[in-house]
Computed example of a mutant assay.
Amino acid sequence: MLTLQSRIRRSPDCLAAELEGEVVMMNVENGAYYQLDATGTDIWNRLEAPVEIGALCAELAQLYDGPLADIQRDVLAFLSELAERKLVLAA
């Protein structure tokens, strides 16, 4: 289970490319394709190097000028979904 203290990184088993401002990904292990919207793409781009989820949320709260608690909840849910699909891993 991911927490705000978890450090995550992109999975090496994930191929990704940006097309027209959105990321399209494929999990090499199972061949499944995924597409991220603009916000998901922004988060994905910030995972190039391992990052602590709490620090990522703090950056996003400043950038998007939203309530930190809401951003933390949404980012944890999003990253948990990516982790379930083996697109991100614990660093």
Rank of each mutant, 00 (worst) to 15 (best):
L82W: 02
R46C: 01
R46S: 09
D13P: 01
K86T: 01
L60T: 13
M1Y: 07
V23D: 03
G31L: 02
A90F: 13
L89Y: 09
G40D: 02
P67I: 06
I53S: 09
R73Q: 13
Y34R: 10
D42M: 11
C57G: 13
N45E: 11
E52N: 03
I8P: 00
E20N: 08
G21I: 06
I53L: 15
E20T: 03
R85M: 06
W44K: 06
A61L: 10
L56D: 11
L89P: 04
N30I: 06
N30Y: 05
S11Q: 05
L76G: 00
G31N: 00
L60D: 02
L60E: 04
A77D: 03
G31V: 08
W44L: 03
L76P: 02
A58T: 15
L76Y: 00
M25F: 10
L56S: 14
T39R: 02
A16P: 00
Q35V: 14
E59P: 01
R10A: 04
A69P: 05
D65Q: 15
L89N: 03
G40I: 03
E22P: 11
T3E: 14
D65V: 08
W44V: 00
L87C: 09
L87F: 03
P12K: 12
A17Y: 09
L56Q: 12
N45F: 07
D13H: 05
Y33M: 08
A32E: 14
S80L: 04
V24A: 06
A49P: 07
I53Q: 08
N45S: 10
G21C: 04
